[in-house]
Amino acid sequence: RDEDEKEKIKEALKRGNEDKAKEIAKRANVSPEEYERLRKEAE
C-alpha cells in the first residue's frame, strides 16, 4: 500500500505534476526526506 503511494508520487513527478505529487505525499504521510528521494528517482 505504501509502495503504491510512492509509485503514484513518482508517476506524478515524471509528468511534472508536482502539486499532485505533494498532495499524495501529504496524504500518505511521506516524509520530506523520502519525498526528495522520490523526486530524484523520478528525474
Results as ranks from 00 to 15, higher is better:
residue 24 I to W: 04
residue 12 A to D: 02
residue 35 Y to W: 08
residue 41 E to I: 06
residue 10 K to F: 06
residue 25 A to D: 01
residue 11 E to T: 08
residue 5 E to G: 06
residue 38 L to Q: 01
residue 14 K to M: 11
residue 4 D to Y: 12
residue 41 E to R: 04
residue 32 P to F: 11
residue 40 K to V: 12
residue 10 K to D: 01
residue 15 R to N: 15
residue 32 P to A: 13
residue 5 E to R: 06
residue 35 Y to N: 00
residue 39 R to F: 07
residue 27 R to H: 12
residue 40 K to M: 13
residue 42 A to K: 02
residue 22 K to T: 06
residue 22 K to M: 12
residue 10 K to P: 00
residue 22 K to H: 07
residue 21 A to P: 00
residue 31 S to R: 05
residue 30 V to E: 01
residue 37 R to A: 11
residue 5 E to W: 15
residue 39 R to T: 06
residue 9 I to C: 02
residue 39 R to I: 07
residue 39 R to Y: 06
residue 4 D to L: 13
residue 13 L to P: 00
residue 28 A to S: 08
residue 15 R to I: 11
residue 26 K to V: 10
residue 27 R to W: 10
residue 31 S to M: 06
residue 16 G to Y: 03
residue 32 P to K: 11
residue 17 N to V: 03
residue 22 K to I: 10
residue 8 K to R: 12
residue 22 K to Y: 07
residue 22 K to A: 10
residue 26 K to D: 13
residue 25 A to C: 04
residue 14 K to N: 05
residue 4 D to S: 13
residue 25 A to M: 04
residue 6 K to W: 15
residue 42 A to Y: 06
residue 16 G to C: 05
residue 23 E to C: 05
residue 41 E to H: 03
residue 28 A to E: 07
residue 16 G to T: 02
residue 12 A to M: 10
residue 19 D to Y: 09
residue 8 K to S: 10
residue 29 N to M: 05
residue 15 R to V: 13
residue 7 E to F: 13
residue 16 G to P: 01
residue 22 K to C: 05
residue 30 V to F: 08
residue 11 E to Q: 11
residue 3 E to L: 08
residue 18 E to M: 09
residue 34 E to I: 05
residue 15 R to Y: 12
residue 17 N to P: 02
residue 3 E to M: 09
residue 16 G to H: 05
residue 5 E to Y: 15
residue 21 A to I: 01
residue 30 V to D: 00
residue 13 L to A: 00
residue 29 N to G: 15
residue 6 K to A: 09
residue 25 A to W: 00
residue 28 A to V: 08
residue 1 R to G: 14
residue 13 L to M: 08
residue 21 A to N: 01
residue 21 A to V: 01
residue 18 E to P: 09
residue 6 K to H: 14
residue 7 E to Q: 14
residue 21 A to R: 00
residue 1 R to M: 13
residue 31 S to C: 04
residue 34 E to D: 09
residue 42 A to F: 07
residue 23 E to D: 09
residue 24 I to P: 02
residue 34 E to V: 06
residue 3 E to D: 14
residue 9 I to A: 01
residue 4 D to I: 12
residue 10 K to R: 09
residue 7 E to R: 14
residue 10 K to E: 02
residue 25 A to V: 03
residue 9 I to Q: 00
residue 1 R to Y: 14
residue 17 N to T: 04
residue 11 E to W: 06
residue 4 D to A: 11
residue 20 K to T: 11
residue 5 E to A: 15
residue 7 E to T: 13
residue 22 K to N: 05
residue 6 K to C: 04
residue 31 S to G: 12
residue 2 D to K: 09
residue 28 A to C: 07
residue 14 K to Y: 06
residue 41 E to S: 04
residue 9 I to M: 03
residue 21 A to L: 01
residue 14 K to H: 07
residue 13 L to R: 00
residue 3 E to H: 12
residue 8 K to P: 02
residue 26 K to Y: 09
residue 1 R to T: 15
residue 18 E to D: 08
residue 35 Y to T: 01
residue 36 E to Y: 04
residue 37 R to G: 06
residue 30 V to A: 02
residue 32 P to D: 14
residue 12 A to L: 12
residue 27 R to M: 13
residue 25 A to K: 02
residue 23 E to K: 06
residue 16 G to W: 03
residue 5 E to K: 07
residue 15 R to Q: 15
residue 19 D to N: 11
residue 23 E to V: 05
residue 28 A to I: 12
residue 1 R to W: 13
residue 4 D to E: 12
residue 4 D to V: 11
residue 26 K to Q: 12
residue 41 E to K: 03
residue 38 L to D: 00
residue 2 D to N: 13
residue 41 E to F: 03
residue 6 K to G: 09
residue 26 K to H: 11
residue 25 A to T: 02
residue 21 A to F: 01
residue 13 L to T: 01
residue 24 I to M: 07
residue 28 A to G: 08
residue 20 K to N: 07
residue 24 I to L: 12
residue 8 K to Y: 06
residue 30 V to R: 01
residue 31 S to N: 08
residue 29 N to V: 02
residue 11 E to M: 09
residue 21 A to Q: 00
residue 35 Y to F: 15
residue 18 E to N: 07
residue 9 I to P: 00
residue 11 E to P: 00
residue 22 K to W: 12
residue 10 K to M: 07
residue 26 K to M: 12
residue 18 E to F: 14
residue 24 I to F: 05
residue 19 D to P: 09
residue 33 E to A: 10
residue 15 R to C: 09
residue 28 A to D: 04
residue 42 A to G: 03
residue 24 I to N: 02
residue 5 E to C: 06
residue 25 A to Y: 02
residue 14 K to C: 04
residue 16 G to F: 04
residue 21 A to H: 00
residue 3 E to P: 11
residue 2 D to A: 10
residue 35 Y to E: 01
residue 11 E to L: 09
residue 29 N to Y: 03
residue 10 K to I: 10
residue 27 R to Q: 13
residue 20 K to A: 14
residue 40 K to Y: 12
residue 36 E to M: 05
residue 5 E to F: 15
residue 1 R to N: 14
residue 37 R to V: 09
residue 39 R to A: 09
residue 43 E to R: 09
residue 25 A to S: 04
residue 23 E to G: 04
residue 23 E to W: 06
residue 7 E to P: 04
residue 6 K to L: 15
residue 34 E to W: 02
residue 40 K to D: 09
residue 43 E to Y: 14
residue 30 V to S: 01
residue 27 R to F: 10
residue 26 K to I: 12
residue 19 D to V: 12
residue 8 K to N: 09
residue 17 N to D: 15
residue 36 E to H: 05
residue 41 E to Q: 09
residue 33 E to P: 04
residue 9 I to G: 01
residue 8 K to C: 06
residue 27 R to K: 14
residue 38 L to F: 04
residue 22 K to Q: 12
residue 31 S to I: 03
residue 17 N to H: 13
residue 30 V to T: 04
residue 19 D to A: 15
residue 35 Y to V: 05
residue 16 G to S: 03
residue 9 I to H: 01
residue 37 R to S: 09
residue 33 E to S: 08
residue 35 Y to C: 00
residue 43 E to H: 11
residue 41 E to G: 03
residue 8 K to H: 08
residue 3 E to A: 10
residue 33 E to D: 10
residue 42 A to E: 03
residue 43 E to V: 11
residue 22 K to F: 07
residue 2 D to L: 15
residue 22 K to P: 00
residue 33 E to I: 07
residue 9 I to N: 01
residue 9 I to L: 07
residue 13 L to W: 03
residue 6 K to I: 15
residue 19 D to T: 13
residue 9 I to Y: 01
residue 29 N to F: 04
residue 24 I to E: 03
residue 14 K to V: 07
residue 12 A to N: 05
residue 33 E to C: 06
residue 12 A to K: 02
residue 39 R to N: 03
residue 33 E to N: 06
residue 5 E to L: 15
residue 17 N to I: 03
residue 22 K to R: 14
residue 41 E to L: 07
residue 29 N to L: 05
residue 28 A to Y: 15
residue 24 I to Q: 03
residue 12 A to P: 00
residue 36 E to C: 04
residue 37 R to W: 08
residue 17 N to R: 09
residue 7 E to G: 10
residue 41 E to M: 07
residue 22 K to E: 07
residue 14 K to F: 06
residue 37 R to Y: 08
residue 32 P to R: 10
residue 30 V to Y: 07
residue 7 E to K: 13
residue 17 N to L: 14
residue 37 R to P: 01
residue 37 R to Q: 12
residue 43 E to N: 10
residue 11 E to I: 09
residue 11 E to R: 08
residue 34 E to L: 05
residue 17 N to E: 15
residue 20 K to Q: 14
residue 33 E to R: 05
residue 11 E to C: 05
residue 13 L to S: 00
residue 14 K to I: 10
residue 42 A to R: 02
residue 24 I to V: 05
residue 30 V to Q: 02
residue 26 K to L: 15
residue 19 D to W: 11
residue 20 K to G: 08
residue 21 A to W: 01
residue 43 E to F: 15
residue 31 S to P: 10
residue 21 A to G: 02
residue 18 E to S: 09
residue 7 E to D: 11
residue 34 E to R: 00
residue 11 E to H: 08
residue 28 A to Q: 08
residue 2 D to M: 08
residue 8 K to T: 06
residue 21 A to C: 01
residue 43 E to I: 14
residue 15 R to S: 15
residue 3 E to F: 11
residue 24 I to H: 04
residue 18 E to I: 14
residue 4 D to N: 11
residue 37 R to M: 10
residue 31 S to L: 07
residue 25 A to L: 02
residue 29 N to R: 06
residue 43 E to Q: 13
residue 31 S to Y: 04
residue 19 D to S: 13
residue 16 G to K: 05
residue 7 E to W: 15
residue 30 V to W: 04
residue 41 E to A: 06
residue 27 R to Y: 11
residue 10 K to H: 02
residue 19 D to R: 12
residue 32 P to L: 12
residue 16 G to V: 02
residue 7 E to H: 12
residue 23 E to Q: 08
residue 17 N to M: 11
residue 2 D to R: 08
residue 27 R to S: 11
residue 33 E to G: 06
residue 42 A to D: 02
residue 1 R to K: 13
residue 38 L to P: 00
residue 20 K to M: 15
residue 34 E to C: 00
residue 21 A to K: 00
residue 9 I to T: 01
residue 32 P to E: 13
residue 2 D to F: 14
residue 24 I to Y: 06
residue 39 R to Q: 08
residue 40 K to I: 14
residue 16 G to A: 03
residue 15 R to G: 10
residue 37 R to T: 09
residue 36 E to V: 04
residue 20 K to E: 15
residue 42 A to W: 06
residue 32 P to S: 10
residue 8 K to F: 06
residue 1 R to A: 14
residue 27 R to P: 02
residue 31 S to T: 13
residue 25 A to R: 02
residue 40 K to Q: 15
residue 14 K to P: 00
residue 43 E to D: 09
residue 18 E to Q: 08
residue 14 K to S: 06
residue 34 E to M: 05
residue 26 K to F: 10
residue 12 A to T: 03
residue 10 K to Q: 03
residue 7 E to A: 13
residue 7 E to I: 13
residue 14 K to E: 04
residue 25 A to P: 02
residue 30 V to P: 00
residue 20 K to D: 11
residue 1 R to Q: 13
residue 12 A to G: 01
residue 34 E to S: 03
residue 43 E to K: 09
residue 26 K to T: 10
residue 33 E to Q: 09
residue 6 K to P: 04
residue 15 R to E: 15
residue 21 A to S: 02
residue 23 E to R: 06
residue 3 E to W: 13
residue 18 E to H: 12
residue 30 V to G: 00
residue 12 A to Q: 09
residue 28 A to W: 10
residue 7 E to L: 13
residue 33 E to K: 07
residue 43 E to M: 15
residue 16 G to N: 05
residue 37 R to I: 11
residue 23 E to F: 05
